[in-house]
Design a protein around this nucleic acid. Structure first.
Lengths: 249, 249
DNA sequence: CCCTTTATGGTCATCCTGACTATAAAGGAG
DNA sequence: CTCCTTTATAGTCAGGATGACCATAAAGGG
């Protein structure tokens, strides 16, 4: 809802809340999952690494603000950035998460293909990809946000076609498999992976043109593009994970 | 993050944002999924139905505010309400969602067992359960919030033990099955449902005491309580849903 | 010309699932 | 008390999906 019935609506009657967006932008490169970090130039946490983000403007919804920051931070045009996968993660509202004032932040997860070098424009002078396995100390509660975002991505690879968001427009099944292996941190059997992907209607569809050869070392692979399905049936379950489904006895 | 590096931090330099929580409280009763609605007493939308909710207090995080509103609206004590399932859904931030001022709302989904009659305390004079299949016109974007919450619950029944949150502390497998059938709107085969629930480690565990008989019409059923698992392996997939996983060919 | 690497096509035993049959144990109607 | 209905619970069985392999094809590198 939007306010208690008995509450007056003087805009300045309350402690002012600032509302920001934070972005956890992931990509797969060099066989590892990487997240985009910027170096803060001001206090608090001056010099520390942090997630890109910023204030929601007066006439913006949170998603527009996130899309705008995504374009700025990746150096892509608004049009290019519009094609990227962007999804609301959750909102962080601990009263003490920002020492200056009350700041509520709506966190988003974005997935980008390939390895577009970040081109920190504007306030983000130093944006760079960092392996999620080797994160530095982070400002605010940003370590927590990255952990939440990472777990969300891991889970959604199972039952959605999200993995294709990490791939270029045309990709091989080997590249798609590498996305799964990188995000899940496991090795998958190639023939079985192929069988399951092709058995999931709408997950990928073949490209008619010639197969790629490029610098690849083995037999040229067929190219596919993302299909129209968003959810996968059947799902692509990740292999056995211990310490996860507890047992009652 | 929390503010552009170049942005000053005068708390009153920005248009003030109000931040509220909205609650989509679900229960299963009379064979249908119901959501808790209150009747608004003031403009805007005076007289209209709306979700319970309210402002986040200065020293509260959103979850505390949601838990507080949940206790108020259900008439439960803070301690009883603390046991209920409460989960952040997502944040709604359309600049025009509230005609009075800029209000960003963090929506939560709550699941309550049985049928505790709502006891609207304080500002919620008229709280009542409404079948989700027969919703009235709702204030703000609350119809959208309910739709999102409902879909989230539907999806999470598949791969989490969430269904037990709709059940009393001790329940029969028939009651658990009714939760699934009600939320999914399907009929399930009893023996198969039983086999799958018992095969999911940590989903339910048997209660040693005597089986229930009470007013039941058939053979007395064994009692179970919720197990320690939160995620289900294997998952309990809902039966065939058309018009959902599109096909590429 | 072999060897390594990657892609792709199969096999096979196992597990899970859905559909279905059968039996047990209550209450209600007559 | 005896059917009859209702719910709980135990099996059976065929088909589909999965994981563990094996085999072949087609590239590049020494």
């Amino acid at each position: 809802m939007s306010g208690n019935d008995a509450t007056p609506y003087d805009p300045h009657a309350f402690e002012p809340f600032a509302v920001t967006v934070d972005l956890a932008v992931f990509t797969v490169r060099e066989g590892g999952l990487h997240v985009l970090l910027i170096r803060r130039g001001q206090d608090p946490y001056a010099g520390a690494w942090a997630l890109p983000g910023g204030f929601i403007l007066p006439r913006e919804c949170a998603e527009d603000a996130a899309r705008r920051e995504l374009a700025e931070e990746t150096g892509l045009s608004q049009e290019s950035a519009a094609a990227l996968h962007l999804e609301q993660l959750r909102t962080y509202s601990d009263p003490d998460r920002d020492p200056r004032m009350r700041v509520v932040s709506v966190a988003y997860t974005a997935l980008v293909p390939g390895l577009p070098e970040p081109r920190g424009g504007g306030d983000a002078a130093h944006a760079q990809w960092t392996a999620v396995g080797a994160l530095p100390a982070l400002a605010f509660d940003h370590a927590r946000i990255i952990a939440d975002a990472r777990e969300r991505v891991r889970a959604k690879l199972e039952y959605t076609s999200l993995a294709t968001a990490f791939c270029p427009p045309e990709f091989t099944l080997g590249e798609l498999q590498q996305v799964y292996e990188t995000v899940w941190g496991v090795e998958l059997d190639r023939p079985n992976f192929r069988r399951k992907v092709l058995a999931s209607p709408g997950f990928v569809e073949p490209v008619e043109g010639a197969p790629r050869r490029t610098g690849g070392r083995g037999k040229p692979a067929a190219l596919y593009r993302a299909g129209t399905a968003t959810t996968l049936h059947p799902a692509l379950l990740r292999p056995e994970r211990r310490s996860e489904g507890e047992r009652s006895v």
